[in-house]
Nucleic acid binder design. Structure first.
Lengths: 344, 344
DNA sequence: CTGAAAGCGCTAACAA
DNA sequence: TTGTTAGCGCTTTCAG
């Protein structure tokens, strides 16, 4: 045998004294005479036969593999997505190919192009930023793609977006309602989609609450615990009574800085983050955060992709790309209890 | 065309007016006359040709895919492994198939069996517990496997293990050296490999330090923040002056419980965890932890697997399975500063 | 109910 | 240098 001694349909056919076609039929549950079935089954079992998925894929043009291309698997938000996607694909009998783009746009484009190699039946792409090159590549993708992120309408493909604007507003309004008036903001890089949208939400909510937008209360930095710490330090002179952060890492870092200064949370300052990742519950005090539905977005993206794949063969009606938005949800924890609250 | 309109080597051959063999040669950088090369290149570019990876795999018997089977992608420890493995495989030109076993042994065995379907060239398996069924399946695996975990020696396949015993000892000794004498322990489920080994390390280190093993200072529970909180509550009556936890989640929960009781860390009690996951730095105060080298284990496992795959063809000498152990490293943070320390 | 044979897309041995 | 052809393992007509 030219392969690694693996049994094939041919070895089984020989052993059972039937044709390869019969073997295939029996193994795929098609009708066959009693003893043919019997003999094939036995031969297969004795040989420890496992069907070669590659050969099968070549034959029927699909791999039952899906690709998820994610910027950074270290980020809890993406971990939540991977989990959710994995659960859906596994249940549907698909394998999951995990591709880390390391937040490099060129890599995202490469993975889009590589859809043409038929290695996977579809792609879930989570770009950090969507350029014209992305839109072009999406429009001419060699297979179904679902984007997790904000595509211009009407998008070239299905997409699932978070509503960071509404999410940020939820948090700011909550801070306002619990008596905070000098609500500082630690934002992420404004040139990323999430960074930008969260800024918008912060401003919108301030306006809505009738609060002025004070530049001294705003700092932009990269996402990260250490950055949150540094940003909080810079904010302190402006005497905020609350700090809203564009993600949980920043919030956690900010909380650390405040505590290190001997400030009490939430007594002296309230702190709120976004994403409601595991870090939020890990914080001390546990951090109020906004769940933007990372897991849910992953789940929906996976479902949409499967929907595209499971169109009954020969159906010429390809539905137009759809967009869905996961609603944000405020998760209130100790870090934003009213200052007058008896706790602590 | 029977496929989805994808260009194949045949369409190119037709367009360029050459044979498919020439197309293949040109595209694979083999010699060809100037204008043949030219014409093939142009036709391929015009058609937007991407080689079909499945067909190629069928031909040469390998997929350039590797599988990583992990119990739970939500756990930061495994996330670190995925990251490290992904980095290595990507650099080596392999795709990564992520399989979540949900910590179900039967699923681990299934993925071992499925190696026979030739979907991936090799497997990195991270079992929660190693049974005889595992050993049998490993011994007869249809392809190269590397286990992350503790196999009996000599193992049936390559493996990478952590030294939790030494790691736990590092932490306990550190607590002892910083003046703690009533060192409590919150352990994980003893019927898992990590759970069991960490218990051993705790006991060994106590003995080494000449400290008695006091059952009142020991609680076992499942891994998790909430469980850590509850366990700490149960420990308090025994008046420990330090709490060592079998992982960071437990340590974080314990810290929360202590703080909620108005106790000061590290002034009243020291807290230490294990794994040195992101949770450790996220804690307040930042938690001392033991880095068992999750990322390093992932990296080594991936390298060992690639080593097995890149044996020059026809080499009949298959080296015996190897075992390597990543050394633990104590990461000291504020949570275990000596009680007399001026900080706080 | 069963077997022969074609073909999925590609590569490589062999001939020309 | 180039083309013809066989074959990787499987499924699926099409005859028998």
């Amino acid at each position: 045998m030219s392969n690694g001694g693996q049994p094939t349909i041919v070895s089984i056919a020989r052993r059972a004294g039937v044709s390869t076609a019969s073997v295939s039929r029996v193994l795929n549950g098609q009708g066959a005479r009693r003893d043919t079935t019997e003999r094939v089954r036995r031969a297969a079992a004795e040989l420890g036969y496992v069907p070669n998925a590659v050969a099968r894929s070549l034959k029927d043009g699909r791999t039952r593999q899906l690709t998820f291309a994610v910027p950074d698997i270290g980020n809890p938000v993406y971990v939540a997505m991977v989990r959710a996607i994995q659960a859906v694909t596994k249940a549907a009998g698909y394998r999951l190919l995990l591709h880390s783009t390391d937040a490099v746009a060129e890599d995202e484009l490469a993975v889009l192009r590589s859809l043409g190699d038929r290695t996977s039946d579809g792609l879930i792409l989570c770009p950090i930023r969507i350029t014209d090159a992305h839109l072009a590549a999406l429009a001419s993708a060699a297979g179904p793609v679902v984007v997790i992120g904000s595509l211009p309408e009407p998008g070239p493909v299905d997409s699932v977006r978070a509503d960071s604007v509404a999410g940020a507003a939820l948090a700011v309004r909550h801070l306002y309602e619990t008596g905070r008036r000098r609500i500082a903001y630690i934002g992420g890089p404004s040139d990323t989609v999430p960074g930008h949208n969260r800024d918008l939400g912060y401003r919108a909510a301030l306006a809505e609450c009738g609060l002025p937008h004070d530049p001294d209360l705003v700092v932009h930095t990269d996402f990260g615990i250490e950055q949150g710490r540094a940003a909080a330090e810079r904010l302190l002179p402006a005497r905020p009574d609350a700090v809203f952060c564009a993600n949980d890492q920043l919030a956690l870092g900010a909380a650390h800085a405040l505590l290190a200064h001997g400030l009490r949370i939430p007594h002296d300052l309230a702190v709120a983050g976004m994403d409601d990742s595991t870090l939020a519950q890990a914080g001390w005090p546990p951090l109020t955060s906004v769940d933007l539905g990372s897991a849910e977005r992953g789940r929906r993206a996976a479902r949409m992709l499967l929907d595209r794949l499971e169109v009954p063969a020969g159906n010429p009606l390809v539905p137009a790309p759809r967009t869905t938005t996961t609603p944000p949800r405020l998760v209130v924890r100790a870090s934003t209890a009213p200052a007058t609250d008896p706790r602590r």
